[in-house]
């Protein structure tokens, strides 16, 4: 009995250590619009597991016919670039127009 009581006390204490611990895990939501376009980031939801995340995503982001498919992924699984990466990542592309395939003549019969 004593052990069990201690265990539950410890767990409860852990659960409220910091305000952020009282929040359920965050999930990013990607919704595919009708017509075959790729999934787009729609926003995020809190949920305790993948099934709940999927249902919450449906209720929050796809209840007005916005989508035909939903992906959810734990937010912590996403690695993102930071504002510090702005220069090294993106500036070098600005002065190199030859990286854009815009110097080709479009053959007749090809629709742009």
């Amino acid at each position: 009995m004593t052990t069990m009581a201690n265990d539950s006390t410890t767990r409860d204490a852990d659960a409220v250590t910091t305000p952020s611990d009282t929040q359920w895990p965050l999930w990013e939501v990607f919704v595919q619009p009708p017509g075959g376009a790729p999934h787009e980031h729609a926003g995020s939801v809190h949920a305790v597991d993948a099934e709940s995340a999927l249902q919450n995503a449906r209720d929050v982001y796809a209840r007005r016919g916005e989508g035909v498919s939903i992906w959810v992924v734990r937010s912590i699984a996403i690695t993102a670039s930071t504002p510090d990466d702005m220069g090294p990542f993106f500036d070098p592309g600005n002065d190199k127009p030859y990286r854009h395939p815009q110097f080709y003549k479009v053959p007749r019969g090809i629709r742009m």
Partner: peptide, 11 residues
């Protein structure tokens, strides 16, 4: 209890 469930129940 949470915003997501609020919307789900309203739906």
């Amino acid at each position: 209890p949470i915003l997501e469930e609020d919307i789900a129940l309203a739906n």
